[in-house]
Computed example of a mutant assay.
Amino acid sequence: MTESNPQNSVLPSVMKHLQALVEATGPSGSEEDVVQLVVKAARPHADTLDVDAFGNVIAVRHAAQADARRCVISAHMDEVGFRVYKIGGDGFLRLEKLGGLDDRILPAQRVWIRTDSGERLLGVIGTKSAHLLGDADRANIVPYASLYVDLGARSRQEVLDMGVAVGDPVGFVGSLTELGRQTGRYTAHALDDRAGCAVLLTLLERFHETPPPVTLVLVFSVQEEVGLRGVSALARHIQADVALALDMTAADDTPEFSGPHLQLGAGPTVKMMDASTQAHPAIRRGLLGAARKRGVAIQREVLKGIGTDAGALQYLGQGVPTGAISVVNRYTHSPVEVLDSRDLEGAVALLEGFLHDLPDLDLRFVALDETGSD
């Protein structure tokens, strides 16, 4: 593999991984099925592969030189979802949220309930029939605590007989599907951040035959959606010279907004800041320089209402230069998230270019005048 390898060759790999990953049900703390898929895909291309006690998957591809820099890149495997909170005597399930879900979109959604045996059972989040709505119903948002899942059961015992128990994970139903015809734009639940995982798996494949220019530590993390918990545990002992998060970010290019900040199809974003991170200036310079050098379209991201694994990775050791790349996503944290495949291609190209430049990148926060003169 050489640095000039054309980026358009990566799309089949990214989409293949993404298709498989979004089929799994893996709300925060219940990512086991996603872990299995990631391990199977990463193992043939990694020098070492481990799953830690938290559930994070760590795949390492060594550089040819033992003293090469180390770069950690993290994408999270978990999705927003629920756990079964209560099984009613009438056979309806009550839910507890996992992650930032919008109560407005929850009624009338199809969901999977995953039992301890690994079986997935289909349910629907109930909603009043249109014929039975009153004026108050039409004006109000039903809070999630009042919602229920209809599993088709007639009693609590029927639910128990199906193998459902309090605490079982619940996730949205969906498959990766192209919108329209030949648009290159795809919808699914859990694109956040299975798309990031798919990009990392493709990046790892790119270095199958030739070692990367730096030692690459790819982290597929757990429990990001409930407070960056998986990678926070990992950050206490992992060592690196540079850290990046690869996640999704919210598009505002739909009719509800004017003057969009982030648009589908305009390229991956280079994070400037968000609620969890102020990107290190050396990483910003490195990512922007890699994009310019290779003609990769990018967007600059400033979004206070979001956080990524970078918020925990920045504390590696005594602190390391940290930044983030995002793929723009419409309708985040919903069952119908939408991305543009061109942005996935761009993310692979940007990461690969950054890694090739990293051995010579000045990682200092600022270049100081070492002469001591005023």
Rank of each mutant, 00 (worst) to 15 (best):
E224S: 07
D252E: 10
L303R: 00
G259H: 15
R236W: 15
D150T: 02
L21Q: 10
L288K: 15
M1K: 06
I298V: 15
A233I: 11
H237F: 15
H76S: 10
P359I: 12
E205F: 00
V38E: 03
F92N: 05
P143D: 05
V80M: 05
V327K: 01
A266R: 12
D135R: 14
A41G: 05
S341W: 04
I105L: 13
E178N: 13
Q157C: 03
P6W: 05
S146G: 12
L191H: 04
A20Q: 13
E119V: 08
S334R: 01
A233G: 10
D50Q: 10
L147A: 07
T254S: 15
A282C: 11
L176P: 12
F54G: 01
G55H: 03
E370P: 01
L228N: 04
V51S: 03
M272F: 12
R206G: 09
F354I: 02
A297S: 15
R194Q: 02
S74V: 01
L313N: 04
Q65W: 00
H208G: 09
G55C: 03
D33Q: 14
P359D: 12
A349W: 06
Q223T: 03
L303A: 00
V164G: 07
N8S: 11
D102S: 14
V199Q: 12
Y331H: 14
M273C: 07
A367E: 15
H17N: 13
L234R: 01
A251Y: 04
I113S: 06
A291N: 10
E337G: 14
T25V: 15
D102P: 04
S258W: 02
L11T: 03
L361S: 13
Q7Y: 04
L98S: 10
L218W: 07
K128I: 13
L21C: 12
V302K: 04
F54V: 08
V328C: 02
G184C: 11
K271T: 10
S155L: 08
K271N: 05
T127C: 07
M272N: 07
S28K: 00
F54E: 06
H131F: 02
V214K: 05
V199I: 15
T177M: 12
S221P: 00
P255W: 03
A275Y: 05
V60E: 10
L11A: 06
L234Y: 06
L132Y: 11
H76G: 07
K40V: 12
V22E: 09
A63T: 01
V336H: 09
I73A: 08
G267N: 09
E178W: 09
T332L: 15
A42V: 09
F54P: 00
R364S: 15
A136P: 04
T115C: 11
A297E: 14
E345P: 07
M248W: 02
L201M: 12
D192R: 02
L216Y: 14
V328S: 01
S129G: 15
R83G: 04
P321G: 10
A145K: 14
G295N: 10
A279T: 14
L244Y: 06
R94L: 05
V111G: 02
E32D: 13
A240P: 02
S4K: 09
R69Q: 09
L151M: 15
I58E: 07
I58T: 09
Q7K: 08
R110K: 08
